[in-house]
């Protein structure tokens, strides 16, 4: 992270944004989630969002446990449902910056229906999906983003299922800002998160993380450094155009902002449509 630190405002001290009294944290050595957490907190700092105005909603899994370490209003909810809680919270409290931290299983499997409808509604929420291709918290089962052929505890002979392209799903479902980054590109990831939070609508950010301890070990993917370097070599930071025509394959990542639209944000659309029912706005 030394490279990325040079681009940060001098005053940034990550400890200001963490509940350090909960340390040591639970994350395994080499887990990419810590980089994602740092990028999120750096982005919050850069945007000047106060911790009191920040609400972080997370689900179940390794990604879900991250919320607790953030010194903000944190809500650790049931498996797959953080987008539903976040939707209610944002509609009730438009003044809050609402960030969802979720994982590939939480967001795409048990929460898949909530994801597509959250994208469709386009509420002003940022969804950070940490994709480590596996159910780490439960011991390493296959997930909807596990690459074909990979070994997990529930695919002992190799995964026979194809994997989801989360960003294509989010784009197709109507998220008005969709992007992807790998943890190797921490400054770019931070910038992408800044963009997603600033964007007035649903921002979906897929973070290609790595699970060294469980997934990497079982599949002989080497150290965390090796896994991250391998992600880097598969990175394709070109535009998203044409990407949908090619079969999606994990490890062959288009990165950066992949799609963007200026679709009306949900709460604004709701207020506009219901204006006739609000006497005070009948001027």
């Amino acid at each position: 992270m030394t490279d990325s630190d040079s681009s940060l405002p001098a005053s940034f001290d990550i400890r200001d944004y963490l509940r350090t009294d909960l340390f040591p944290h639970f994350m395994c050595v080499g887990c990419g989630h810590g980089i994602a957490l740092r990028c999120l907190l750096t982005a919050v700092h850069e945007l000047g969002i106060s911790k009191d105005e920040l609400a972080v909603v997370s689900g179940i899994g390794c990604s879900g446990r991250i919320a607790a370490y953030i010194d903000a209003n944190t809500l650790h909810v049931t498996h797959g449902r953080p987008l539903t809680f976040a939707s209610g919270l944002k509609l009730a409290r438009p003044d809050l910056t609402v960030v969802v931290v979720t994982g590939d299983g939480d967001c795409l499997s048990i929460g898949g229906n909530h994801l597509i409808h959250a994208c469709r509604r386009n509420l002003d929420i940022t969804c950070l999906m940490l994709n480590n291709e596996v159910y780490g918290m439960t011991g390493g089962q296959v997930s909807p983003t596990t690459d074909e052929g990979r070994y997990t505890t529930t695919t002992p002979l190799g995964n026979h299922e194809p994997s989801f392209d989360a960003c294509s799903i989010a784009t197709a479902a109507g998220a008005s800002l969709v992007g992807r980054e790998i943890t190797f590109q921490a400054p770019a990831l931070k910038n992408l998160i800044v963009e997603a939070i600033s964007h007035p609508g649903f921002g979906f950010v897929e973070v290609i993380s790595d699970c060294t301890e469980i997934y990497g070990r079982r599949n002989d993917l080497g150290s965390s450094t090796e896994m991250i370097l391998s992600q880097k070599s598969g990175m394709r930071p070109e535009s998203y155009g044409g990407a949908l025509d090619q079969p999606f394959r994990p490890g062959n990542w288009q990165t950066g902002v992949l799609s963007r639209s200026d679709r009306e944000e949900y709460a604004a659309a709701y207020r506009r449509r219901t204006r006739s029912a609000r006497p005070e706005e009948q001027t």
């Binding site: 909603v57 809500l75 909810v77 049931t78 449902r81 987008l83 539903t84 809680f85 976040a86 939707s87 209610g88 919270l89 944002k90 509609l91 009730a92 409290r93 809050l96 229906n113 909530h114 597509i116 409808h117 709701y270």
Partner: peptide, 23 residues
């Protein structure tokens, strides 16, 4: 605010989120 959610699981999630927000 009224919102029709995608299912009942989402519905109760949303009302809990809103209630946490003080509503």
């Amino acid at each position: 605010v009224f919102v029709q959610m995608e299912d009942e699981i989402a519905s109760i999630g949303a009302i809990l989120g809103a209630s946490v927000g003080g509503v």
